[in-house]
Amino acid sequence: MWPDRRIQDLFGIPLPIVQAPMAGPNLAELAIGAMQAGALGSLPCAMLGVEQALAQCRQVREATAAPLNLNFFCHRPPEPDPAREAAWRDRLAGYYREYGLDPAMPLTPSVRAPFDEAYCELVEQVRPQVVSFHFGLPAAPLLERVRAAGARVISSATTVAEARWLEANGCDAIVAQGAEAGGHRGVFLYDGPLQDGVSTQLGLFALLPQVVDAVRVPVIAAGGIGDARGIVAAFALGAAAVQLGTAYLFCPEAKLSPMHRQALREARDDGTALTNLFTGRPARGIVNRLMRELGPMSPLAPEFPLAGGALAPLRAQAEAAGGADFTPLWSGQAARLGRDLSAYALTRSLAEESLAMLARAAG
């Protein structure tokens, strides 16, 4: 009854729904609920060490043998830039003094590990059905080992050029990530400072049909999809599946702070922006004090993922006082469509409501 079964057949899943990998709030419990309902469950590994990721995989496999997606970043580690980091700390110094902190205090660097030999060995041990990447693809030798482990490979594209590059470099399917999506943009081919390129990023309904026309592999639609209406529309534009992230943040299995959960419940349609302040790469989140006062995009923010190091003491102080002034509140533009359902119930509801809508449209 689904218009396009290519993703279901490729991944071995009953439903053409992917629970988006969301580093931080997305651990085993969320993936398990989605998987048991028939979606492709995802575990993001960018903020997990190898042993932590392995423990999460074991927890999933104790609950279900359904297809699993392991997600990794594959950015280039940043080059040290002491002048830029000093300028960033200087820009934040007023906030440090406001909270009684020394602007020159020692900092713990913010770390996001790219896909490497150790993560590749994890894939070879776990042998997930799908491995997804953000910010392009890893080096060819590592990618060949992922494929040899039996995994289907997918990655995110924010432009037609990125989609063509991903297909040419061996992706089995492509996630077309519209600018509405929460969290980090998957940009990897932009020539220049990323903060200068966000204004040209396409929304999903403009991006999706162009990507579908440009590649032969099936396309997964992501960005601003929060209910059956978005799912049906994505299929009408040529998608073979959909990926939802923000919708799953409302699930009780999502590991969110009370402040983040409340911000999502109160989110406005115009209440998010793309920002590089928290990590150094453009990512969509709910506008808070830091974004309002510094502007969401700053050339001073150090390269990904270093920007977060200087914010960590401020975030800790503000959160201890019950505030989210310096906390990334990742969210897509369709948060107002969120429902307080379990991951299992949300997945089943999305599928049933979409099929009913497709049946009505077919007459």
Rank of each mutant, 00 (worst) to 15 (best):
D191E: 14
D81T: 09
A151C: 12
P103N: 02
E62K: 12
I154Y: 00
E144W: 06
M47S: 10
F235S: 02
V215T: 12
R339A: 10
I286S: 09
A334C: 13
I7V: 15
Q210I: 02
A31K: 07
W88Y: 06
C57Q: 03
Y99T: 10
F11A: 12
R152F: 10
L249S: 11
V212W: 06
S331P: 01
L70D: 01
Q8R: 14
A37W: 04
G280W: 09
A28H: 14
L358C: 07
E79G: 09
A161I: 11
A356G: 15
C120K: 10
S156Y: 12
E167L: 12
E303V: 11
L264N: 11
V126H: 04
A301F: 07
R58G: 01
G197F: 10
D4C: 03
S156C: 14
D269A: 13
R61S: 08
Y190S: 08
G182W: 02
G38E: 06
L68K: 07
R164Y: 05
R339D: 05
H134V: 15
D4Y: 03
A228L: 02
V242R: 01
F133A: 02
L27D: 10
P209A: 12
A149M: 10
S257E: 03
A28T: 12
G33E: 03
L337K: 08
V211P: 03
R289N: 07
Q36L: 14
R152W: 09
V123K: 07
S155D: 08
R152C: 12
W2L: 00
G332K: 12
T108P: 01
T275I: 09
T64W: 02
